[in-house]
Nucleic acid binder design. Structure first.
Lengths: 141, 141
DNA sequence: AAATAAGTCTATCTTTTTTATAGAGTTTAT
DNA sequence: ATAAACTCTATAAAAAAGATAGACTTATTT
């Protein structure tokens, strides 16, 4: 299960994408619209900014905005950034690999094999689907 | 990511399946073989027993054993029992569904749609692969 | 220049979940 | 009777998740 953090991030990104034309969007607007604690959301947007996904403008008339077109933001990237591994086991994770302590040999572990397949099936979707694909209101860019 | 509990459960089940012919297996044997804390494993095996997946025999010569042939124990069942939902979002979970607080209408949520696909792709594997499929040493039953 | 709106940053705190441990109790083979 | 083994309940330590607080900086507007 994705953490609340990641879930909130997706909803915030959706709101930002659907209102790109309106210039910088207030944190408070997203928080209200999507029913998220404003302070918690603040931290999340900051992380997304530090990762280069969002930009921000300070001062009056400021707010957050997307740094890239929605179709270039893969869902997998957001999940990895906020939640870490997408795989079900550390020993089959591509980005957060850890050795299996319960196995004598990962190479001949049947669990490893099946979980690699699950990972691939999930990634096939999450790497290819982007923010654009989860918008309700379709945008042009 | 699966919890340690579920990971340990899989390894324990593998050991039990590969040693079915030896009668009841000691918790301590599994713990040693798979490098798991014996007391923690105790709780896990008890949960598996209460769910009807394992049986146990008390007293001298006792231990745990499978109640069903490995090929009838789907991986999805074990995950759901110990970890809960397999889906990435509560609003797309088949067995642990919860309404989405951030959506006005789940029916038109693009995130919901994509995550349903991820769920289906994962379940296609996890519902069909069984304990038998993750064994190293092949068994007859 | 002052006031105000808005993001930035760091720290802290609470709650929940996960992981692990302890120990007394019960059952059964020998 | 004894020892081996699972059962059960409680508890506790550690980690993660979720949330909050407040002082700080930046930029616009008047």
């Amino acid at each position: 299960m994705l953490s609340k953090k990641t879930q909130y991030a997706f909803h915030a990104l959706i709101h930002l994408a659907e209102n790109q034309d309106k210039g910088p969007i207030l944190i408070s607007e997203i928080a209200q619209e999507k029913n998220i604690s404003i302070k918690f959301l603040e931290n999340i947007l900051l992380e997304l900014k530090n990762a280069g996904i969002l930009g921000s403008k300070k001062g009056k008339g400021g707010g957050y905005y997307l740094m890239k077109p929605p179709k270039e933001i893969a869902l997998a990237k957001i999940i990895r950034l906020l939640d870490g591994a997408i795989a079900l086991l550390p020993c089959v994770s591509l980005n957060y690999y850890e050795r299996c302590d319960n196995c004598k040999d990962e190479a001949v572990c049947g669990l490893n094999e099946v979980m690699s397949k699950v990972r691939d099936a999930s990634l096939k979707i999450l790497e290819n689907k982007t923010l654009k694909d989860i918008l309700t209101k379709q945008v042009t860019i």
